[in-house]
Amino acid sequence: MLEIKNLHAKVEEKEILKGVSLSVKPGELHVIMGPNGAGKSTLANVLAGRDKFEVTKGEIQFNGEPLIDMLPEHRAGEGMFLSFQYPVAIPGVNNMYFLKAAVNAVRKYRGEDELDAVTFLKMIREKLKVVELDDSFIHRPVNEGFSGGEKKRNEILQMISLEPKLAILDETDSGLDIDALRIIAEGINNYRNKDRAFILITHYQRMLNYMKPDFIHVLMDGKIVKSGPKELAHELEEKGYSWI
């Protein structure tokens, strides 16, 4: 599904990614851990198509298509989803309006009919239950005045509404209380299937108590320096990164 080969990327002349290679197959859950400044968020942003990150070397294939020159909105249409570490607040734009525009843009890209207001509302109400939010939530401006937990749940709401093939969750577990963490982990677990893959970027092992990752990768100084099974996360939690 996703093939990253020897990926180098820079931001404002500073090289952050220095040769990342990663292969993700449908149905898999990959976890990327690593110290601050290792390049985890840069990798997530490069995959989503943020133009301030410039790819200088290497290649990325997504569903067999070259990804690097693809517009961010087309990536979303192709099934890529990034849950942002810091979702931006957008005063004046109603959350429901935004969600509807997003869902219909993606449906249009995929050659599906756009949803009318009634069908959309019915669909979104079901999804709201999954993330345990009430209706009033979608009538507020996007992320404006949302608590940290609400912002992350809004990201998950968008994810399950857009039905991506690959979801990248950038520190979705940071700054959450236990309840919010459980809701989000369950949301992801219920959403896993054999066709859908996840990349979870995290600092902590605690989210992994709720889920079953296939691989743990350690990203340090712009490279994946170690990969292993779930147990690697426990080891990292105990010993830190210095032993690698």
Partner: peptide
């Protein structure tokens, strides 16, 4: 116009031109 907001919309599949209109309308709505 906030670049982060524009990218946020694009990353959700909304084409840049449409995202632009939504953001300007959002600024005006108040």
């Amino acid at each position: 116009l906030d670049d982060d907001a524009l990218f946020y919309f694009q990353s959700r599949g909304i084409p840049k031109a449409e995202a632009f209109v939504l953001l300007v309308s959002g600024f005006i709505s108040e």
